[in-house]
């Protein structure tokens, strides 16, 4: 069904119509939340909060790109969770969802357990590199390089100019590269050589 019709029906109190939008965007939203928060439980909480906020704020949606409008809510809710988490300081490396992802990847029989372990370590390293970034750089690189958003969409989501978005992306990439280079033994050989 047309997205505008679903939004209109949602505004009239049709929760099923809004849930169709939730189903359409929950995958994208969870990916962004997971990469920004680097924790599945926090990401799930943040995404659920985001959809509740979005439904409550649907009156304020003035047309345009609904995906960008929704993702802005997701990103801002993730920022709230990040700040809340920083206050609590409950995060621990032991909480990383290694086992969960392992289960998800076991179907790839061509990969040896050793290769799988290396890949998991690399992904964890990249995740840590992203998490080490300041919020605005983290958001820019996640939206662009991990989730594949266009510059214009990122500008809309983060309320920044396109030029600013490009600068942030470039700086974020440089910092991730520098972070990874400190753990070069985990990197693919091609990448390791190019860093020299």
């Amino acid at each position: 069904m047309d997205q505008d019709i679903l939004i209109e029906r949602s505004l009239q109190g049709d929760l099923e119509a809004f849930n169709q939008l939730v189903i359409e965007y929950q995958g994208l939203g969870y990916g962004v939340a997971y990469r920004l928060l680097d924790d599945p439980d926090s990401a799930a909480d943040a995404l659920q909060d985001s959809f509740i906020k979005a439904y409550r704020a649907l009156d304020n949606y003035r047309g345009g790109n609904f995906k960008s409008w929704l993702m802005r809510i997701v990103v801002n809710t993730c920022y709230d969770h990040l700040r809340s988490r920083q206050r609590k300081r409950t995060e621990s490396l032991d909480d990383m969802p290694v086992e969960e992802e392992y289960v998800a990847q076991l179907t790839d029989r061509s990969e040896t357990p050793h290769e799988y372990a290396e890949r998991q370590e690399l992904q964890a390293l990249i995740g840590s590199a992203i998490t080490s970034l300041p919020e605005v750089l983290r958001t820019a690189i996640v939206l662009r390089d991990v989730e594949g958003y266009a510059y214009e969409e990122i500008a809309e989501i983060t309320s920044a100019a396109v030029g600013t978005v490009k600068s942030r992306i470039n700086r974020a990439r440089g910092r991730v590269r520098d972070y990874l280079s400190k753990n070069a033994e985990l990197l693919p050989s091609v990448y390791r050589h190019s860093l020299k």
């Binding site: 929760l15 809004f18 849930n19 939730v22 189903i23 929950q26 995958g27 939203g29 969870y30 990916g31 997971y34 990469r35 599945p40 990401a43 799930a44 995404l47 659920q48 959809f51 509740i52 439904y55 969960e100 992802e101 998800a104 990847q105 690399l122 992904q123 990249i126 690189i141 390089d145 991990v146 594949g148 470039n170 990439r173 440089g174 991730v176 590269r177 990874l180 990197l187 693919p188 091609v190 990448y191 190019s194 860093l195």
Partner: peptide, 23 residues
């Protein structure tokens, strides 16, 4: 090196959805 960093980031697997988030 920036180009290769981007390739690494793009190779990150998509995250499986743990549950439905319908309200």
């Amino acid at each position: 090196t920036l180009r290769q960093t981007v390739e690494l980031l793009q190779d990150l697997p998509s995250v499986p959805l743990p549950r439905s988030f319908t309200l």
